[in-house]
């Protein structure tokens, strides 16, 4: 899309209307909540949200709801299957002539636990069937709602409540699963990563996706002060550092072709991001684990060496 075709040029263009409202049970300074707030602003009122057990499952907790949209709570593995049901139901009502112009969008909202692990098969099925839906994963890189247990989205060396940092292991020994590529391998028409420190990029991606039929998939970095041990007030800063260090690349794939929507000109050293978070504290104190930090830096560098556009 050409820049002149977008409604979002600067932060000033952020729609004033809120669909996510105050009073949620989420932690102060939740990064994923900002991502959802912005995504709903771009998607608008006629968005039906299907969501699964996760921190964001608490956004509707009887008798309260923190979204103005219609919502449907579904089992952990079934978000995209529920989306299929909603889409089919709307189509049947259109066929019967009960509604004329549905104009409804269906959004599956999950954390990384459902997106990377528990709900991956139903997502795979929905993409394969070319279901016309949106998927937003707010990725806080662990099972944050239950006490920050490791998930396959947990990055290398992160301490979680199930991957303790000990003398022999520096937290999580495994590397983060590349869900962007797993999804892209299904050849969806649109898949993107977003970060709240670049809100215009986020809004534009949802805007662009709205013109595409079929599966539209998003992974948002969800800075998690409670699980990551970062300061709630620094959420956007931590998010910005994830982008500026190159740890969280901002990209999209339209029809399978990957384009980076923001390339940090001079990547900040990964330490700047890691040091803001207690989950990586063991890499620096009581003594520095240079090997692990260097391994993280090398992985970032080798990723960007392979980036051509």
């Amino acid at each position: 899309m050409q820049a002149d075709q977008t409604a979002f040029r600067t932060m000033k263009d952020t729609p004033a209307r809120e669909y996510l409202v105050s009073g949620s049970p989420l932690c102060p300074g939740c990064g994923g909540e900002i991502a959802l707030k912005l995504a709903l602003k771009a998607m608008g009122e006629r968005t039906i949200v299907a969501f699964v057990p996760s921190c964001f499952g608490l956004l509707t907790l009887y008798p309260y709801s923190s979204m103005k949209n219609s919502t449907l709570f579904t089992p952990f593995a079934c978000g995209p299957a529920a989306a299929q049901g909603i889409v089919d139901g709307i189509n049947i009502r259109v066929e019967k002539g009960e509604i004329k112009d549905p104009r409804s969008k269906v959004l599956v909202l999950t954390g990384d636990g459902a997106a990377y692990d528990i709900g991956l098969q139903s997502t795979s099925g929905a993409i394969h069937r070319r279901l016309d839906f949106y998927y937003l994963c707010y990725d806080n890189e662990a099972y944050g709602n239950t006490g920050f247990q490791f998930s396959s989205a947990t990055p290398f060396a992160s301490a979680t409540s199930t991957t303790h940092a000990t003398e022999s292991t520096p937290g999580n020994p495994l590397r983060k699963k590349d869900l962007f590529e797993v999804w892209r391998a299904h050849r969806p028409p649109y898949v993107a990563t977003v970060a709240v420190s670049r809100p215009v990029d986020l809004l534009r991606k949802f805007e662009k996706a709205s013109k595409i039929r079929g599966p539209k998939l998003f992974i948002a970095l969800g800075v998690c002060p409670t699980g990551w041990g970062s300061e709630p007030r620094e959420t956007v800063r931590v998010d910005r550092l994830a982008v500026e260090t190159g740890i969280w690349p901002l990209k999209e794939a339209v029809g399978g072709r990957v384009v980076h929507t923001y390339v940090p000109r001079r990547r900040a050293p990964v330490e700047e991001y890691l040091k803001k978070q207690k989950r990586f504290q063991h890499l620096f104190s009581p003594k520095e684990n240079r090997g692990a930090v260097q391994a993280i830096q090398n992985a970032v560098d080798s990723y960007w060496e392979g980036v051509s556009e």
């Binding site: 669909y19 409202v21 105050s22 009073g23 949620s24 049970p25 102060p28 956004l59 509707t60 009887y62 008798p63 309260y64 709801s65 923190s66 979204m67 103005k68 949209n69 219609s70 919502t71």
Partner: peptide, 18 residues
């Protein structure tokens, strides 16, 4: 079923006390 018929009503919870 715990149907919530009023959407966007959580501001009533007054989380300012946190």
């Amino acid at each position: 079923t715990s149907l919530i018929m009023s959407t966007g009503n959580s501001p009533q919870k007054k989380t300012g006390g946190w």
